[in-house]
Structure formats: structure tokens, C-alpha cells
Amino acid sequence: MTSTKQNWRSDEFDDDDMERSYSTQRTAIDLGLTILAFILLGVALLPLGLVIAFVIIRGGSRLNFDLFTGQIPAAGLEGGGIAPAIIGTLMVVGIAAAISIPFGVLAGIYLSEFSSGKIARWIRFFTNVLSGVPSIIMGLFAYGVVVLTTNTFSAFAGGFALAILMLPIVVRTTDESLQLVPPQVRWASTGVGASNFQTVLKIVLPAALGAILTGVTLAIARAAGETAPLIFTVLFSQFWPTGIWQPIPTLSVLVYNFAAVPYENQQELAWAASLILVLLILLTSISARIAARKSIY
């Protein structure tokens, strides 16, 4: 016992004086790593900044009233805008949301609230697989299922493809949001004599609504920028969309079609459309953030 006590001295540690010193190895490494991490952060953010700056510089020159009202010009013509494509994108995304949100949210509710362990595990697994399937496959599927059976490229076919793309995201975020609601709150509801259905509808779902809304909005933002599934489902047109059973213009396909053509006017419009698309997605993401602030748990 005595020998341990004798050996138990604090002067075996260095920096005994507690004063800050920049010469020791420890502080030098600490400083070096902090600087390195900061630089790498800058490098990681660089592409984001560059993409946005590039799109603003190239697309900003056509950012005027005509852009939002004008028709899409044919090859070789001057002026015009991308109004039909903006409407087209909103239409296709609207169709996708109308299909995927009800199914996705209800599936998420089932997974989180009503399913039993084993089935739920498999459904979750396959939902994850679905969200990993490349988007062009979704387009191919929609082509086979909708385009070939209706014999026409259409806004609906594109919406269908995007809906399948959005579905796993909606299911998963709903499922996860609902599981964030503590089980104690469910017990409380059951404890005051509410049925399972009442508990889910009146307590759990309202509590998770903010989080679900966030997920859904992010799914919409993701779908809005997709090009591959639209190329051979919605196809493209230069005219105003007048229905959902015809090919219509969309922003992303417009960018795809116009970016590499030799006509300067169309190239400029492609850049302007990119800018609008980025702004659209930014706007949706911001509203998702706002919705997230409303979440309770």
C-alpha cells in the first residue's frame, strides 16, 4: 500500500504548469488537424458553390419576364421562354405526388403502427432496395407499363415513373417519423380508452406531421430534378401542355435537349431552365426545413 502511494505522483505528466504553449507536440497536432479539417470542408463545399455560381452566371442573363411567359422557341428562332416547361414540370411532379403520397404515407403508417416484426422487416428491406434502383429503370418500367399500354408518351407516364421513385422515400420517412413518437404517448392514448385507430389518427399522426411533411417535400425536390425517367415517358414538346395524356415539355428534359444543340438561343434557355430548376429545388428544400421546425419530437 505504501509503495503505491509513493509512486502516485502527478509530476510524471508533462505540462505541469498549466500554461498554454504552442510548442508541445499535442497542441501542434491539434492545431494542424483543425486547419486540415477546415480546408477539407472548404473543398467539399466548393462544387456546390461553383455549380450554383455557374448556373446563376450562365442562366442569369435570360432571367426576365419573357422567360416565365414566353413559349419555347423552335430551333433557330430568337427570344421565347420556358413557361410551358415550368408548367409541365409542375404537372408531372404533381401527378407523381398525387400517386406516391397517399400510398407512401399509408404504407408508412402500416409499417410503423400495425405491422408485426417479421413482415415489417421484409417490407422495409424491399423499400430500401427500391430506393436504390437507378432512376432510369423506373423510367423503363413506366415505359413498359404505361406508355406501351396507352400507346402514347404522356405526362401521366412521367408522373408514374417519378411516383415510383418517390414512393420508397415517402414510405421510409413516414415510417421513421412515426417511430420518433414515443411509445409512452401511444400508451397514454390507449390508457384513456382510445382505440388503436383513434390513437394513430388523432395523436401519433399529428405529432409526426411536421417530420412527414419534411420527408415528402424532400422527395418532391428529388423527383423534380430527375431527367432519365422522363426522357422516354413524357418525351418532350415545345407547346403548351393541354392534358396529361400527351407528351409535354419539362424543365429537366428541356435542359437535356437544349444544352448541346448548336443554337445559341436554345443554349441560353437551357441555362436559364437549369437556374429555375435549381431555384425550384432550393425553394422546396427551404419549405421542408420550415416544416421540420414544426415537428414535436
Partner: peptide, 26 residues
């Protein structure tokens, strides 16, 4: 047969609705 739990678990609703919820469902 009512129940009070270990951790306070009010519903994420107004104080008023916390009381009326059980009454309404019943």
C-alpha cells in the same frame, strides 16, 4: 380504470385538448 405513467406523457396537444381527448373518444 385510468392510468398515470412513470414519465409524464402528455399528448403533444394543447392543455385543453389533453383533457378533452379522452372524453371525446369515449
Amino acid at each position: 380504470i385510468g392510468m398515470v405513467f412513470q414519465k409524464p406523457n402528455p399528448f403533444p396537444k394543447s392543455i385543453y385538448d389533453n383533457i378533452t381527448y379522452g372524453a371525446k373518444v369515449n
